[in-house]
Design a protein around this nucleic acid. Structure first.
Lengths: 215, 215
DNA sequence: TAGATTGTTAATCGATTAACAATC
DNA sequence: TAGATTGTTAATCGATTAACAATC
């Protein structure tokens, strides 16, 4: 595998391609061209081929790509050929929603524990997954071999939770709290700010208005 | 206002700057330089100045920026100087979580209605917001003057919901269903795929592994 | 072979960074 | 005035697109 830096946009598109290929496969289609993938996912054919070229040669010139093969190649590239065990920190509304989110299971993620420090929540099961007290974080992560943690606590407590996670064998953190957190280099961190997505909409709506009104 | 195309990354950073400025303001600081904003948000000072330059001149050479003024300038740029009324389609776990998500309220978003077609959910209140049947979608959107809709239904029903929204006066749609949907040009659309965020983590973890093992 | 489509290189486009004149 | 920091231009960097040789 080349050591070239892969653009994040490429990884996101690979995810989109894989979903589209799964859909095409369900329709019983066995071969597909970069142009067809492009049409189905809203990118350019050159983009599709370039994205794939970072990782190898998966097609046959003059023919195209085998749908199933390419699907599995991408799944492997994305690291989704194995099941990932996930813990969720915070059994509030967001944590509860995420624990039941079908989109995770579909892509091979398995929620193995939810953590909270509200005594009345401990011991409950959400979607079959037990709610544990925060004191058992390290124990359960190690017992269940969880590799990824999702932080779904209020912003005030996010860093505190991150510090506790840093003491465990967790490899990746997805942070939904709207704040910046610091974690050791060895942990792969990603922040999702749900509000920013609405703000990108309001920005564009405000821009449209000012173009109409202002001009 | 210039008609230059603004990079999406710039808009996202403006959102980050505004949160940082709010925090700095709470500490009672009145003036700030691009370098300090850069340090506080993890970008370069040139980036901060360039991002702001798309929209005007907000600083004083040799001095810096007035914290409060700049905060409000950015809030206005993001279209957040007015309250936006939001409806959520789908009273499942995600819809429920989003209806109670503090991060929205903080930035001036107000959830004015939740819609579902499960009879046993109708009439309930989530966080003070009523759950309405889908048949009343258009009526309530128009009555409440909702401008933005959040789709939080399973992927199979997302397009159907989008079609119904297209019949209303809704101006923007935030789609959480992991699928591509089509809406009229006049509607500002944005997709959020929660699973992709986990996949960006697993991709990097898989990459780290292969670099360690493969090399 | 002729037609089709890949993989890859070169050209283009756009975003970030460095540098500095303007100016408080 | 001297020091500081902005706003902006030019240089750099990186990603996308166009084009085409390779080849099925």
């Amino acid at each position: 595998m080349k050591t070239l830096k892969i653009p994040e946009a490429t990884v996101i598109r690979l995810s989109v391609y894989s979903r589209y290929l799964a859909q095409v496969d369900r329709r019983g289609i066995t071969t597909i061209s970069s142009g067809e993938i492009a049409d189905g996912t809203g990118v350019s054919p050159a983009q599709v081929r370039k994205d794939l070229a970072y990782f190898g040669e998966f097609g046959t010139r003059g023919v195209g790509y085998n749908v199933k093969d390419l699907y599995w190649h991408i799944i492997k590239i994305l690291g989704l050929n194995t099941t990932w065990s996930v813990v969720i920190i915070g059994a509030g509304n967001l944590g509860t929603a995420l624990s039941m989110y079908g989109g995770f299971r579909e892509r091979g993620f398995k929620v193995v524990g939810i953590f909270d420090n509200a005594p009345h929540k401990i011991g409950y099961r959400l979607n079959g997954v037990e709610v544990y007290p925060m004191e058992r974080l390290k124990e359960i992560i190690e017992k269940e071999k969880a590799q990824i943690a999702i932080i779904a606590v209020p912003a005030e407590h996010a860093q505190e939770v991150a510090d506790q996670l840093a003491e465990t064998s967790i490899q990746g953190i997805l942070n939904f709290a709207p704040c910046v957190i610091n974690v050791p280099e060895r942990i792969e961190l990603r922040n999702v700010d749900l509000s920013v997505n609405l703000e990108l909409i309001t920005f564009n709506l405000a821009l449209r208005r000012s173009l109409k009104g202002g001009k």
